[in-house]
Write a protein that binds this DNA or RNA. Structure first.
Lengths: 230, 230
DNA sequence: GAGAATTTTTTGCAATTCTGAAGATTTCTT
DNA sequence: AAGAAATCTTCAGAATTGCAAAAAATTCTC
């Protein structure tokens, strides 16, 4: 998944529920290669609790697990969440497909499959959901689709520029962005040569975060620019 | 374009873009059997304009049309709408699949296919996007089949545009939709560059909701657009 | 085709946000 | 510790954006 300059994009988390270790190991490699974070469970029960606890962005579910049927898992996942589910299986008959899709699965891929296709289908599902899931930096949470920032539970209301600036800095928490970088990416190309807009906005963001109880989230790097805690 | 106020509209509308008449005729039968309303176009250009005018709920797109490539059609559809697209084709190679899915298609089915599977996959797409039956956002209830909105128990009478706009915002409660998104998806055809129709309609909806006792349902996000509480 | 309802555009106003300058403060260097 | 450089704070005018009311245009209904 490529990344345009300025966009917040953390890695998506995929949960694999699969009892065949050879396949799961291979899948993990392929998906990590494609820049996903991967968790693996080898039974349905463990998968269900993992889905609840880790809140993945998508579940890849193998049919034919030892403890629970795939349809059962899909239905129980659907009851509590809307996490997209992609079924993976050796069975390729229409009735199974239809049953699974009606049980709440979002896609169905028969083995043997090509990992490029799986990745493309994963991306389709992720594309459809919230365009950027919430990102957390310490106790601060940024939700790009809602355009909201929270410190712990309380909302920090930012102006449009302030929001974009903070999102930009959170692109890579810890990384120091120069004023030049910030001006180019948050303001565009045309700013007067000696303007302190960036500084002023940083100060305003700090002020608003402080009102909500947040200290020391943005670090000044003298002579260079700013960075958020990483 | 959209249905007139009061018209019963519970059947979903599918647009088939397919140049092979045998297949399209068969598809129409199967889909109508499954209780969909079906429109058919035999070229890409006609398909694109039909998609714009008729605002279907889903597009079934055949690859290998005489005038435009499937990827081109998918991309152009995606530019203006979020209508789900299912690709239908004789080609079954991975690279084509990946290309199409990356072009904005939501699913891909290789011929020969079983119509039950196609219908199941259509339902998966529709399930995600629209609320078949009534949907509630807080004390507000939307009944798409009756085209009615309620605040608690009392009906809020909205004009067609107002209704469409509210339904669009309720697609993903909480998500901020830009004015551009809203214009493209609710109005479709290009509006004059500096029109504030969206704002005016939002104001009208707010007014009508307020008359029924509903406050703060639509949030303004300065510089971007609007979102319903979620 | 007249009148009503709806949609769109226009206009003016109010509120928010952005910006640049100037002075105060902090940090760094020697 | 003093001087220099960088950064922070403050604030008022400018620019942008959203809102409301009403007029104009369009569409629908009878």
């Amino acid at each position: 998944m490529t990344n345009k300059a300025g966009a917040v994009m953390d890695k998506k988390h995929i949960l694999i529920i699969e009892d065949d270790l050879d396949i799961s190991r291979l899948l993990r490699l392929e998906l990590e290669e494609a820049d996903f974070v991967v968790t693996h469970c080898d039974t349905g029960m463990r998968g269900l609790s993992a889905a609840r606890e880790e809140n993945p962005d998508l579940v890849v579910l193998d049919l034919g697990l030892p403890d629970l049927s795939g349809a059962e898992i899909a239905r129980r996942l659907r009851k509590t969440t809307e996490i997209p589910i992609i079924i993976l299986t050796a069975k390729d008959d229409v009735s199974t497909k239809v049953e699974m899709l009606n049980s709440g699965a979002d896609d169905y891929l028969a083995k043997p499959f090509h990992s490029d296709e799986l990745i493309a289908r994963i991306n389709v599902q992720l594309r459809r959901r919230s365009f950027g899931s919430t990102q957390s930096v310490g106790p601060m949470t940024i939700d790009p689709t809602r355009r909201q920032v929270f410190w712990d539970e309380s909302e920090v209301k930012l102006s449009p520029r302030e929001f974009e600036l903070l999102v930009y800095l959170c692109n890579q928490p810890g990384r120091v962005y120069s004023r030049e970088d910030i001006e180019k990416n948050v303001w565009g190309d045309e700013l007067p040569p000696s303007s302190n807009v960036v500084d002023v906005h940083i100060a305003n963001i700090r002020g608003k975060l402080r009102d909500a109880g947040g200290y020391g989230m943005i670090r000044t790097v003298r002579g260079i620019g700013y960075a958020v805690k990483g």
